[in-house]
Structure formats: structure tokens, C-alpha cells
Design a protein around this nucleic acid. Structure first.
Lengths: 195, 195
DNA sequence: ACAGAAAGTGACCGATCGTGCTCTTTGAGC
DNA sequence: GCTCAAAGAGCACGATCGGTCACTTTCTGT
């Protein structure tokens, strides 16, 4: 049962790639199977349906995101240094790690925000989970910890800059997007620490 | 040739609605035709292909956007009052005017950023055009007008807040998103006017 | 009112969609 | 090394995809 796991992982990776590019709704089993080097029916030995495959893809997408953006920052001291690293990794996530296709989570968020179903449920659940982890990091910015409301303000603007960066860099090819995002975020941290 | 124009407009509206919900890549002629009350082949009397229909849809989408967000603000004095109104209308655009489906332009931006073709070309062209109009409004924030670079910083953050607002409100149902966006934007204008 | 164009229908095309079925190959545990 | 399940191929299915064509209905300009 080891060979199967490796194939499964390749399927999930490929599905994630295609979903980030074309959207979940436009991914076809044929394209995925071909890219992975399988027959279409071979996919069904790993997932009982397309929907289950999509769910697994999005779930693994979040795992990869947290692993890439959050995990490596836990070695740093809490507060500003850690948060700056998280932000930087977050920008890397869409600009470098997923240069082709962009961030799967952003793509899914825009696509699924008005399409009820298990896929959207999963997306919302894991986004909330991520938000919680992020809130803990943000609150540690000041010695008397930031309140929930203060942290929410910081998170809103932080995520906004991430989205702005992705929009500017990926669609418009704006090479200054990263600098703009970093500057805006640094100013935000200054305000948060002072306020 | 008057009846045809009305039908054409209904087709474009419906296509825009569906594209905003499911993405351009997942819109089918059958669904559009059915929703408009036409046969599938009837669509081809108005557009020679699906791609042409999509192009017309996105183009009209931008027209509607500018008409809704920008046009009504031109009665206000340039600078801060006008820009605040633009921002407000922009939030309304995705939260109220397009409550079901969200902003077509945002959806298209995320979907098409890595899919070359005429549709993406059109998207980029019209986005640049909008950015230019926006830059004029932003520069008028201060008496010695803001420089290009200063305006770019403001526009980056402004658009970031719009995206953050859409993300928070539409996907997560966060009812405080609008307040957060407005507060962040007001602070941005303060900084821009002072700096 | 009449002619001709515009608007719209229905049947059909080949291709592709997700999925089930049977069959063969392959790999892992004893 | 044998066995048996896991992994995968191949084919076929009904539905739907974008698109064409011949035909009918409806509107509009004169």
C-alpha cells in the first residue's frame, strides 16, 4: 500500500495545480489523469468521486500552506520578528512557491464564496482555523497583548496586503508589488505596536 | 434591430452573473440560454462564439463598474471627498450591487491571471485604464499633487482593502469587514494628506 | 401592407464530461 | 515464491459540451 500513497500524492499535487490555474469547476479528470500519467479510471482507485478528490486536494492545500508559511517561523521569537517572517513567507507562497497558478486558497475563496457545498464548508473551516493561529501571533505584538478587536484590525489589513500583492504581481506583473506590500505591512506593525 | 439589443443585454447580464459565481471557465451556453429564456442556438444570433460572448461580457462588466463606482462621484469636489465616495461605492459594488456572485472583475482577475488569451488581455487593458483614472483622483488628495510613486502606494493599499473587504464579507460572512475597510482607508487618506 | 432582414427554434454533430464495469498487471506479506 | 489484494488499463455509458444548419417566426423600414 505504499505505491498507492505516492500516486495519490501526485494526483493531489496536480489537481491543486490545475485548480489554482483554472478553478476547481474547470478541472477535468482527463487532464489530471493525463498529467499524472494515469488512465482516467485509474483515478477512481484513489478517490471515489471527483468531489472527494477535490476535498482532499483543498485539505492538503491548506496543510502545505501552513507547513510553508507558518511552521518555519515557530523557531523565531513571538511577536514582530515571527509575524514579519510569516508575512514574508506568505508573499513567497503565491509569488515563488506557487508562481505558476498562484495560491490555491485565494483561488478557491473567490470561486466558492457563493457556491454552497462541502468544498466551501471545508474552505471556511480551515480558513477560520488559520485565522485563529494567526490571531495568536498578532496578539503577541505588544506586551500587554492586543485585544481580539485590535488583532482583528491587524489581520484584516495584513490579509488585504497579501491579496493586493497577489493581484498586482500576478495579474498586472507589477514588480513593485512586493515592496509596496512589505512597506504597508511594516507601517501596520508600527501602528499596532504603538497603538 | 431594437429587440435584438435588449436580448443581447440580457444575455450579457446573465453571463456576467454566472461568470461571477462559477468563473468564466465553468459557464455553459446551455445554462445561460435557459436562464435568459432562449434556445442555445439563439445565442449564436448575437455572438459568433462563446469567446466573443465572454469578451463582450467582461467589457460590459467594466462599463458597468465604472458607471456605478466612478461616474456618480464626479459631481463631488476632487480630492478626499470624491475619493471617499469612490471607495464607498467600490465596497457597495461587491457587497450590494453584486451581492449574489460578487465582483466579476475580481473573479476574472483571479481566474485569468495565469491563463493567456484575449480575455486576459482585455482584463489587463481595462484594469490599467481604471488604474489611470483612479490615479488622477488620488493625486488630487494634496495641493501640491501627489507624485506618481506616492499615488501608487495609496492605490495599492486602497485596492488591497477592497479585496480584503470582499474576502471577509463574501466568504467568511464577516459583518465587520466594511467597517474595517473604511477605517483602514480613512487612516490611509490621513497619512497620504499629511505625508 | 408588404418585403426582407433580424430573431429565434429544433435537430444534430463530434468531442468531452464524470463514472461504472471487467479485465490485467503489479507489488507486498507470509 | 506464492498468494491475494491493491493498482491500473480499457471500454462503454448517458449526459453535456460548443457549435452548425435548415427552417420558422417576428419585427422593422418603407
Amino acid at each position: 500500500m505504499r505505491k498507492g500513497d505516492a500516486t495519490k500524492a501526485r494526483i493531489l499535487d496536480e489537481t491543486a495545480r490545475q485548480a489554482a490555474v483554472k478553478g476547481f469547476g474547470a478541472v477535468s479528470l482527463n487532464d489530471v489523469a493525463e498529467a499524472v500519467g494515469l488512465s482516467k479510471s485509474g483515478l477512481f482507485k484513489h478517490f471515489e468521486s471527483k468531489e472527494v478528490m477535490e476535498l482532499a486536494t483543498l485539505d492538503q492545500g491548506f496543510d502545505r500552506f501552513v507547513e510553508f508559511v507558518w511552521t518555519p517561523t515557530q523557531a523565531l521569537p513571538p511577536g514582530r520578528p515571527r509575524l514579519e517572517k510569516i508575512f514574508d513567507r506568505w508573499l513567497d507562497w503565491s509569488e515563488v512557491e506557487n508562481a505558476a497558478g498562484g495560491c490555491l486558497i485565494v483561488a478557491a475563496s473567490v470561486e466558492l464564496d457563493d457556491q454552497p457545498g462541502p468544498l466551501r464548508d471545508l474552505l471556511i473551516r480551515r480558513t477560520k482555523q488559520w485565522r485563529k493561529a494567526l490571531a495568536r501571533e498578532v496578539k503577541a505584538l505588544r506586551d500587554p497583548q492586543l485585544s481580539d478587536e485590535e488583532a482583528a484590525v491587524v489581520i484584516f489589513q495584513m490579509k488585504s496586503y497579501v491579496l493586493g500583492h497577489a493581484d498586482g504581481k500576478r495579474l498586472m506583473g507589477d514588480s513593485t508589488a512586493r515592496k509596496a506590500a512589505r512597506a504597508a505591512f511594516a507601517a501596520l506593525l508600527d501602528r499596532a505596536a504603538a497603538g
